[in-house]
Design a protein around this nucleic acid. Structure first.
Length: 295
DNA sequence: ACCATACCTCTCTC
DNA sequence: AGAGAGAGGTATG
């Protein structure tokens, strides 16, 4: 078993690592003995939150000159460049959201790798977090490249051309159901260059979204997830059943409004940080209803 | 342009 | 225990 060493990354930002990695943004993190294991920039790392810093577990033989690269990758992934206190002030428009912020302080939006993020949310359609998590782990286990860290094994997420070469059936066997054909076909389009994911980061929100929606299995909601969780579009505000319910129950928003009416409402209220507001409300209403059902 | 319905099948619940 | 409902939506008619 290969040895490991620990890097230290100091933080001066609110952070609740466990909450952030389990908030339904990313689906492949695995917790073991206080460490969260997963891949960042195609590298397997362990991450653990200490008091004022983050410990990062890496291979013992990681060259010293790469240590800063790893730290920066983690920093980028956790969006430690976001000034959360300012964002809190910005979105604290009412008592509802103030309470959500107080309860889930340190919940951050992630900056994920766009391709995996895209597939993750195509697969999330009419599914649930538990199931989606198992589907994405299966895709990586079957078709990604193995990585090891100590006695830990994980996998890179397969690139578009790899998934494109599979076709629909192998994906169905992994439990994707009707989403298999969307992933297969989106993979083909990305491989063919019909959509250049890396170019979306520089486009304005609307333009990037139009481009994403051209892919099969990508509608308004999935596009907004990809824009928010991987493409730096913090005004993207994915509205799923939960967030819709939160708007209706807590903000007296009329029922059955169309997606874009809700999104416009959210943007008028929270502006360029609507995505952050959405994440806190999502967390609040999802965990609230969980407690109700178990009582 | 809108609106209802089907879609795979896994998970959780009663 | 085993069936039944519901699941972070999208495509289609």
């Amino acid at each position: 078993m290969a040895k490991q060493k620990t890097l230290t990354l100091s933080i001066n930002q609110p952070l609740d690592l466990g909450l952030t990695l389990n908030s339904g943004q990313a689906f492949r993190w695995h917790k073991k003995d206080e460490w969260f294991y997963g891949t960042i920039s195609n590298m397997l790392v362990g991450i653990k939150q200490e008091d004022k810093y983050i410990s990062i577990l890496v291979d013992e033989y990681l060259p010293p000159e790469h240590q800063d690269t790893v730290k920066n990758s983690v920093k980028t992934y956790l969006r430690l460049d976001d000034d959360l206190e300012s964002i809190y002030k910005w979105i604290s428009t009412d008592d509802i959201i103030k309470q959500a912020i107080a309860t889930y302080r340190g919940l951050r939006i992630l900056r994920q790798e766009p391709w995996e993020c895209l597939v993750s949310f195509i697969c999330s359609a009419n599914s649930n977090i538990t199931r989606n998590s198992s589907v994405l782990k299966s895709i990586a286990r079957e078709y990604g490249d193995p990585l090891s860290l100590g006695d830990h094994i994980d996998y890179t997420f397969p690139r578009p051309d790899r998934l494109a070469s599979l076709g629909e059936d192998p994906l169905r066997k992994l439990g994707l159901g009707f989403r298999a054909k969307y992933v297969a076909s989106a993979s083909l389009m990305v491989t063919a260059g019909d959509l250049d994911l890396s170019s979306l980061m520089e486009m304005p929100y609307d333009e990037a979204k139009e481009n994403l929606i051209r892919l099969p299995g990508v509608g308004e909601k999935v596009a907004d997830c990809v824009l928010l969780f991987s493409l730096d579009k913090m005004e993207a505000c994915p509205i799923d059943r939960w967030v819709r319910r939160a708007f209706e129950n807590w903000y007296s928003i009329e029922e059955n409004l169309k997606y874009n009416a809700l999104r416009t409402w959210a943007f008028e209220r929270w502006g360029t940080y609507a995505g952050y507001a959405q994440q806190y409300l999502f967390q609040q209403i999802r965990l609230n209803s969980k407690t109700y059902s178990t009582v």
